[in-house]
């Protein structure tokens, strides 16, 4: 049974002289919600794109359930990018139909549940949706897929508290951790803390630490924020 476990083996991704990801070797556990946290520009987004098969490593390999991450991997990976997804002239309902036609694992019934859960108007063009509703739609489309690996790049960034709360609730209500693994990149650490099983801290292209959130809370490090600060300043 595939479940979305991701392995980086000596992965480097260079853009010219800059190494966005620098010799990273790590295995992310499956059936968990994993937070990829750290300062902006640390390589989180690039790492997600590598997992999604949307970028290729300059060196090393990225595997999802043992398979090399390539573009064709989009059959097993549901990626919610940081930038907007889809065509602005489609209505919400058309977007759902479009995703249904593209992704074999897309469940239209679930999509409809998510649409109503997120309170999205079916007949409105996606380009005319508010920023918050565009963010909700992106998450709804991603969660309507039964893909083993779900990737969300900064899903809460720049959104108001109500929208952030509905996205968090949507994720909790619809993700199936018996079959799925979720990796969320974020710098809003405090807010996602109750969501995460595992956290990986990334800075300057390297993963500095990966731990169970429960262990961090038990250690009295002052939660994720305290833990992150302690590692980043040493």
């Amino acid at each position: 049974m595939t479940a979305g476990s991701v392995t980086f083996d000596h992965v480097t991704k260079a853009f010219g002289a800059t190494r966005a990801v620098h010799d990273v070797s790590i295995t992310f556990p499956s059936h968990k919600i994993i937070g990829l946290i750290g300062p902006n520009g640390g390589g989180k987004s690039t790492s997600l794109k590598l997992m999604a098969g949307l970028m290729h490593p300059s060196a090393g390999s990225v595997r999802v359930d043992g398979l090399e991450a390539r573009r064709g991997l989009c059959a097993t990976v549901a990626f919610a990018p940081d930038a907007g997804a889809g065509y602005s002239f489609f209505t919400v309902a058309e977007m759902i139909g479009y995703y249904h036609s593209v992704f074999a694992d897309f469940d239209p019934k679930r999509a409809e549940e998510l649409r109503s859960f997120m309170d999205l108007p079916a007949a409105v063009r996606t380009g005319a949706l508010s920023k918050g509703n565009q963010a909700r739609l992106k998450i709804a489309l991603t969660l309507a897929r039964a893909a083993p690996l779900i990737l969300m790049d900064e899903p809460l960034s720049g959104l108001d508290p109500l929208v952030r709360a509905s996205i968090v609730r949507g994720l909790i209500s619809f993700v199936d951790l018996d079959r799925q693994t979720v990796v969320i990149s974020t710098h809003e650490v405090g807010e996602v803390e109750p969501l995460l099983d595992v956290v990986a801290l990334m800075d300057r292209g390297r993963i500095l630490a990966m731990e169970e959130v429960q262990g961090i809370q038990e250690s009295g490090a002052g939660g994720l924020v305290g833990w992150m600060r302690r590692i980043l300043v040493r």
Partner: peptide, 17 residues
């Protein structure tokens, strides 16, 4: 588990625990 997770706003694995 799911209802409780939504209620508390936490990961379903946390409620299973």
């Amino acid at each position: 588990v799911r209802e409780m997770a939504v209620e508390f706003g936490v990961n379903p694995n946390t409620i299973s625990r």
